[in-house]
Write a protein that binds this DNA or RNA. Structure first.
Length: 144
DNA sequence: GCCAACGTTGGC
DNA sequence: GCCAACGTTGGC
């Protein structure tokens, strides 16, 4: 069980659309490191859903429902990956970038330090801190 | 809308 | 294999 953070511009694919569709293919990642992160995801892993550019805040949590497979939107001969994600639960209070930067634990997040990477790793302490900032209870662990 | 940061590409 | 140029992302 690992934690991740995935970014999307709300004008392209907002959290509300994921809630509406209940599942989506996380396609279009064109960065090797981000791709490798996608490939490291396992079914049942959790992902913070971050709105970049507009909002600049973490709005919810999604879960991986299908592990990495080839990106159907990729060019012939290219080697990109996607995962499928589904909404898990929203944060009661969205957590903005400024808040993350101001937080002791969260200031060191890859989201902050590697701002151009669209799929980043999240540590357990960061995960906890964000739920606290988001006024959202951690879901009780249950078997996949 | 601007600009800084950074990943990627291509020339040498 | 190095490094400059270029394109893209994303915060402000």
């Amino acid at each position: 069980m690992a934690y991740w953070l995935i970014k999307s511009e709300p004008s392209v694919y907002p959290w509300t659309q994921l809630q509406k569709e209940q599942q989506t293919v996380w396609s279009g990642v064109r960065n090797f490191e981000a791709r490798n992160n996608l490939r490291a995801m396992k079914v049942g892993d959790s992902c913070l859903f971050y709105h970049s550019n507009e909002g600049k805040e973490i709005v919810g949590v999604a879960k991986v429902v299908r592990a990495a497979y080839p990106d159907p939107t990729g060019e012939e001969g290219e080697d990109w990956s996607v995962v499928d994600v589904a909404p898990a639960y929203p944060l009661v209070k969205p957590v903005g970038l400024a808040t993350l930067k101001a937080g002791k634990t969260t200031a060191g997040m890859q989201l902050v330090t590697r701002s151009r990477l669209s799929v980043t790793r999240v540590t357990a302490p960061e995960w906890k801190a964000i739920h606290k900032l988001g006024a959202t209870e951690l879901p009780t662990a249950k078997k996949a």
